[in-house]
């Protein structure tokens, strides 16, 4: 059988991802995680000295803490299998990527294992976040300097 012929057969046999179901599940779980985040935010605003603008930081940290508990007990991967991007895209997913790598590499020690592999999945998010922020800010700086836009 020729390669092209086989690839045709493979296309016919392989089931397509259930697009609608997957998007719906991602939407629901992602929305739910953000709603929980909103509740945490409200908690910090009411009981601590945070404003709506500053509550984002403690909220994010708290969500990552939840991610640690769920990751440690092996529940985050189950949520992930169900929700896909719904649990990967919120900051809890970033936490899960860092924490799961840390737990995984504990057997190689804290320095070489945990330290060396902490960002092996989440590193790309840090890389592209920082680099894109740099270029966006640089472009805006240039545009402001030549007077096209203002701060």
């Amino acid at each position: 059988m020729e390669k092209e012929q086989y690839q045709q057969l493979e296309q016919n046999v392989t089931p397509k991802p259930p697009y609608f179901k997957n998007v719906a599940k991602a939407f629901l779980v992602g929305g739910l995680i953000c709603t929980i985040g909103q509740a945490v935010s409200l908690f910090y605003i009411i009981f601590f000295d945070f404003t709506e603008a500053t509550a984002g930081n403690p909220t994010v940290a708290t969500m990552v803490f939840f991610a640690m508990i769920l990751t440690g007990f092996g529940l985050y991967k189950k949520i992930g299998q169900f929700a896909g991007a719904g649990s990967a895209v919120p900051v809890t997913g970033f936490g899960n990527a860092v924490i799961s790598a840390a737990i995984e590499h504990r057997s190689e020690g804290l320095v070489l294992g945990v330290g060396g592999n902490l960002f092996k999945l989440a590193g790309s998010v840090v890389l592209f976040g920082v680099v894109s922020a740099f270029f966006v800010a640089l472009i805006k700086f240039i545009l402001v300097t030549i007077g096209v836009v203002s701060w």
């Binding site: 089931p15 990751t71 092996g74 991967k77 990967a88």
Partner: peptide, 17 residues
């Protein structure tokens, strides 16, 4: 799994395949 794919506790969605 840790070698070929992701850490055990990482929440990625595996396809039907």
């Amino acid at each position: 799994e840790r070698q070929f794919r992701y850490p055990i506790n990482y929440g990625s969605q595996k396809p039907q395949t």
